[in-house]
Design a protein around this nucleic acid. Structure first.
Length: 774
RNA sequence: UGCCCUGUAGCUCAAUUGGCAGAGCGCCUGGCUCUGGACCAGGAGGUUCCAGGUUCGAAUCCUGGCGGGGCAACCA
């Protein structure tokens, strides 16, 4: 499947804008992991975005390790991150950077801020600092050390660096505003003292910068243009900008935030994943059930599938959670045309072909590929008297719609013969031990036979097949959103091992990294960590999509893996997961209106405007006065509407005083519209010109009207063209879809470049349509 | 009860910037088939969070409300 070009999401829109305006010459982005864990599917989204952007715009993506915390970071994670990124196919060339390499520059820049009086050393203990920060709704209070002289601060800061103070005894803080509504701006910490060994810097430093101080400055050092991070950093952006402004860095990077990837039944928190690893709940960071890239790789997923997935989920600012089904779809789609089919029975049930000659063996030449995959190749599959089939492909008491083997029924053995089950053998406890079946001669695959079994099942030869272990994986968590008590949400059967599985012998000589489709089961490959084990261990990469009649399922895994294929679930076990707790009662009609203040109420009453219009004007400086002044010439309601809906929005927050015209000119415009001299459409065009600096509405109107297409004959021509270009819609309109009228009007407006009176057009379109209806 | 982000199909996203509300996944039906897969054809599914306003025309602009997420680590 061709890789579709990524849609122009909001990030690409911003980049296009910056490139077009010349603000940015070449796009430089960065992927900044902290080396404190293995990268996971969420990092795949971020790195696909950043490296993808660099490739698309012929820019550069830097790999930068955000290693400012010596307590949690380690070279082993650096190695893992680099390996996984390379596996994904991303190349950063020589642009491999480490925030810790910038410690020197960062230190110098901190001194600069101190000298500018924008940073100070605070001797307060940790809990005091926390206490004085205030809360989200109450302002903080200033530290008693806040107003130390710059020289003293510098001396202290240098002493901090020199190691004369104990851990936690002092910090360097930016001097911003303890009452700031954004808590990140309440004198944020820049440095803490940590007499620790950094995995790269060793003991060179005993003070370490915090994220906010290090990150933007690192971007600046590298010449990053667009610094793309996840949503939770949005409140940090103001601080990001503050530091850069304080240092007077130009040109400087800008931060943009997008929604991180969330997957149902999965966690993408490094902290929680680390917990699973440390507690031995999973078999390391690369356990095939883990959402880590290492886990996905070991499972057998290819990078292409992950990239397709990442590109297809979009880049937005909506905090959303994805269905793992989409990832699974991408994995199947990637493998369908590149994984040869072989036969493997996970949970064998022996069958004997009672009428097959003793000791007779047939070698069947079976194609590796189904009819719809245009690839060649066959392998030999032995067939004899004793065979094995999937236990779940037989049912003594078949549910409705069951298409496999039943007592007395027939079924096709894939690539081989049709058989009939004549006798069911059980042990003394009633357990099924063997089926005695009849081989139906002349029904070999490819031969013409009148017999049409409803189903085809997979099988292997009992003697000649090879023993294998098959590992089937289900989702790690049973809850769609595991939450903080994620350990409670663990799925107890996320790994099921089929120890008695058997596979056709053809695979014996295949290279170990070969991926297969086990017919009717799914895609598999040998676990790369257990490549020398005997019998071989196969991981299920993803099951086949299975639409078994009557089953509505949300997970292939629920049905296909971890249970015998085709097993029918009891009704209540297939119930949908709990829906998101969002959007509870969206239908409840409640129209609460904010209680108006006395002033607002009074003003609204005397102005005669409705609340929507009035409130749009009332809070804007000088707007009520503007309204009053303009109302001397024309109705206040009209002025109000034009102000609230046209003028003020066009200002985009700029003050009214910046207008190139005054209330009287504005009133003139409104009057033109009011008394019908100008259509609304024309009046808007005039306003646009006025905003551009022209002052005389009446004159402008003349020129606007001069270019207006108002000749009915000309318009009728255009309408005729539109109608004949959209014959189907004309029919629909005649058939009763009158809402299409707006569409026709819109088309005509487009073809006149907006230079027609839509009211006139509408009337004419109605006439024409009435004409064509008869 | 502050600041920031955000509400379009079951899920994830589009909608040429005010002019037919669409796509992928999922689901259903039919076709094909020696994989209950793949493929092909069709279908269901919408109060564009709600209520007002402006407009010939609003998912889009204006006002108000409601819902969801984030921010008070010497983590990033």
């Amino acid at each position: 499947m061709a890789r579709q070009p990524a849609a122009a999401d909001f990030i690409r829109t911003i980049i296009d804008r910056d490139l077009a305006s010349g603000a940015v010459e070449r796009v430089i982005v960065r992927f900044p992991p902290e080396p404190n864990g293995f990268p996971h599917i969420g990092h795949a989204k971020s790195s696909t975005l950043n490296f993808g952007l660099a490739a698309e715009y012929q820019g550069q993506c830097h790999l930068r390790f955000d290693d400012t915390n010596p307590a949690t970071e380690d070279q082993r994670y650096v190695d893992a991150i680099k390996r996984d990124l390379q596996w994904m196919g991303f190349a950063w060339g020589e642009h491999e950077y480490y925030a810790s390499d910038y410690f020197g520059t960062l230190f110098d820049w901190a001194c600069k801020l101190i000298l500018k009086g924008l940073a100070y050393v605070d001797d307060s203990p940790e809990d005091v600092i926390r206490g004085m920060r205030g809360t989200v709704t109450t302002p903080g209070t200033e530290s008693p050390y806040r107003n130390r002289a710059p020289e003293e601060n510098l001396e202290l800061f240098e002493a901090m660096r020199a190691g004369v103070f104990a851990d936690g005894s002092r910090v360097l803080r930016a001097k911003i505003d303890m009452g700031h509504p954004n808590m990140k701006m309440r004198d944020p910490l820049m440095y803490r003292i940590r007499h620790a060994t950094h995995y790269r810097q060793g003991g060179a430093w005993c003070i370490y910068p915090f994220y906010d101080w290090a990150h933007g400055q690192s971007d600046a050092i590298e010449g990053v243009t667009h610094s793309i991070c996840t949503l939770e950093f949005a409140t940090n952006r103001v601080l990001y900008d503050w530091y850069l402004d304080a240092l007077e860095i130009a040109p400087r990077p800008h931060q943009y935030e997008f929604a991180r990837l969330n997957l149902e039944y999965t966690i993408t928190s490094k902290r929680k994943l680390l917990h699973l690893v440390q507690e031995g709940i999973v078999d390391g960071w690369d356990d095939p059930r883990m959402p880590t890239l290492a886990g996905l790789r070991r499972r057998g997923v290819r990078p292409r599938a992950i990239k397709t997935f990442c590109n297809s989920i979009g880049t937005t600012k909506v905090d959303s959670i994805h269905d793992p089904g989409l990832l699974e779809h991408c994995v199947r789609d990637d493998l369908n045309h590149r994984a040869p089919r072989v036969l493997c029975v996970q949970d064998p049930l022996p069958i004997t072909l009672t009428n097959w000659p003793e000791d007779h063996e047939e070698i069947i030449s079976a194609p590796y590929w189904p009819h719809d995959v245009p690839r060649d190749g066959v392998r030999s599959v032995p067939f004899s008297k004793e065979l094995l089939i999937e236990r779940s492909d037989f049912s003594e008491d078949p549910p409705k719609g069951f298409r496999r083997l039943t007592p007395g029924g027939i079924v096709r053995l894939r690539h081989a013969y049709i058989i009939r089950c004549n006798h069911v053998e059980k042990d003394e406890r009633g357990n099924l031990v063997r089926l005695h079946c009849e081989w139906i001669e002349g029904t070999r695959s490819g031969s013409n036979t009148a017999l049409k079994p409803k189903g085809t099942i997979h099988w292997v030869d009992a003697k000649r097949s090879l023993p294998v272990i098959v590992r089937a994986y289900d989702r790690l968590f049973a809850q769609p959103v595991p939450g903080d008590d994620f350990l409670e949400a663990l799925n107890p059967s996320s790994l099921i091992e089929y120890k008695e599985a058997r596979i056709e012998p053809s695979i014996a000589d295949d290279p170990p990294e070969k991926r297969y489709q086990f017919t009717r089961l799914g895609f598999y490959w040998r676990d790369p960590e257990l490549i020398n084990s005997h019998p071989p261990v196969f991981n299920c990469i993803v099951t086949l999509r299975q639409a078994i009649q009557g089953q509505t399922k949300y997970s292939q895994h629920t049905l296909g893996v971890g249970r015998p294929v085709g097993a029918v679930l009891p009704r209540d076990s297939q119930s949908k997961p709990q829906p998101k707790t969002t959007t509870p009662a969206k239908s409840e009609p409640k129209s609460k209106q904010r209680p108006l203040s006395a002033d607002e109420e009074h003003w609204l009453n005397q102005s005669g405007l409705n609340a929507a219009t009035g409130l749009a004007i009332y809070g804007i400086p000088a707007a009520p006065e503007f309204l009053e002044a303009a109302s001397e010439y024309v109705s206040r309601v009209s002025v109000g509407n034009w102000m609230a809906n046209q003028l003020l929005p066009a200002l985009k927050g700029a003050p009214l005083s910046s207008l190139p015209f005054g209330p009287s000119e504005f009133a003139e415009l409104v009057r033109l519209a009011d008394n019908g001299k100008a259509s609304t459409h024309e009046a808007r065009a005039v306003l646009k010109l006025m905003l551009a600096g022209e002052r005389t509405p009446t004159k402008l109107l003349t020129s606007v009207q001069a270019s207006t297409v108002s000749d009915s004959e000309v318009l009728r021509d255009i309408i005729g063209n539109v109608l004949s270009d959209h014959e189907d819609r004309v029919q629909a309109y005649i058939a009763g879809k009158t809402g299409l009228l707006g569409f026709f009007v819109g088309q005509v407006m487009k073809r006149t470049n907006g230079k027609a009176d839509p009211r006139q057009v509408k009337a004419l379109v109605k006439e024409e349509l009435a004409g064509s209806a008869t």
